[in-house]
Design a binder for these strands. Structure first.
Lengths: 120, 120
DNA sequence: ATCACTGATATACTTTAGTATACTGATTGT
DNA sequence: ACAATCAGTATACTAAAGTATATCAGTGAT
């Protein structure tokens, strides 16, 4: 009854949902730039904003919230003489590394594939 | 002069471009469903359309073109008694497999991470 | 007192992605 | 003759993503 050769439709659909979820978490124009910026040592709102050319405060605010909901960053409020808010990458965010590496390599190769002149 | 510890900004930007390129190739609502459908043996336009609930002919047409430009599928016109058009995955499209697998696994795990109740 | 900086939010707008629906011209079937 | 299927395209629309710009209250410096 061909059980292992082909997966069931339901399994296949579920796989697709997982893939689309992953895509959703990292796509959009600013998510990766924000992650990279924080990774490069920018931890405060205005600092991150300044480090990313053309981003608007509204988008930064919106994306930071989404990244926080997805547990990729943490927002910390520390109350000294004046209030201080910092954003940091979570340990969990590091689990994205292999995926990002794979995407980087695929994209690099893809550019070559697309650019290459067809041999006669 | 810390040459290998930290990458240059330019390198970093280029990496990001590659990543965004990869994202662009596979994102959108229908690209993966279309790839999966062809992979499951649907090779003709109407066949693919019927296999994907809710997709419109316009989107299918548009996405097939993009997938073809990105060399993930080939469109073949064979001229028998009547004309026959088939879509097939390219060998190159298989290079996406590790990436898709990684996204599937990350997404699956992420769902668990997000859903988990915080321990007191 | 005034100015600039902090971490944002609000409102209104444009652009891009996706939907809905009708239609074409050629072929095959009844 | 008529309907159905093929492989799409055209036009018009809605929804989602992103931009532009102004504003807020609190702190610190001049």
């Amino acid at each position: 009854m061909m059980k292992d050769k082909k997966q069931s439709d339901e399994e296949c659909l579920q796989d697709m949902r997982h893939i689309q979820d992953t895509l959703y978490v990292i796509s959009g124009k600013w998510k990766l730039p924000i992650i990279m910026s924080i990774n490069n040592g920018n931890n405060r709102f205005r600092e991150i904003a300044r480090s990313i050319p053309k981003i608007t405060l509204r988008m930064l605010s919106k994306e930071l919230k989404e990244l926080e909901m997805n547990k990729l960053i943490v927002r910390t409020v520390s109350d000294g003489s004046s209030i201080l808010i910092t954003y940091e990458l979570t340990a969990y965010s590091k689990t994205l590394a292999p995926l990002i590496e794979e995407m980087k390599n695929w994209g690099k190769n893809h550019k070559a594939v697309i650019t290459e002149r067809a041999a006669v």
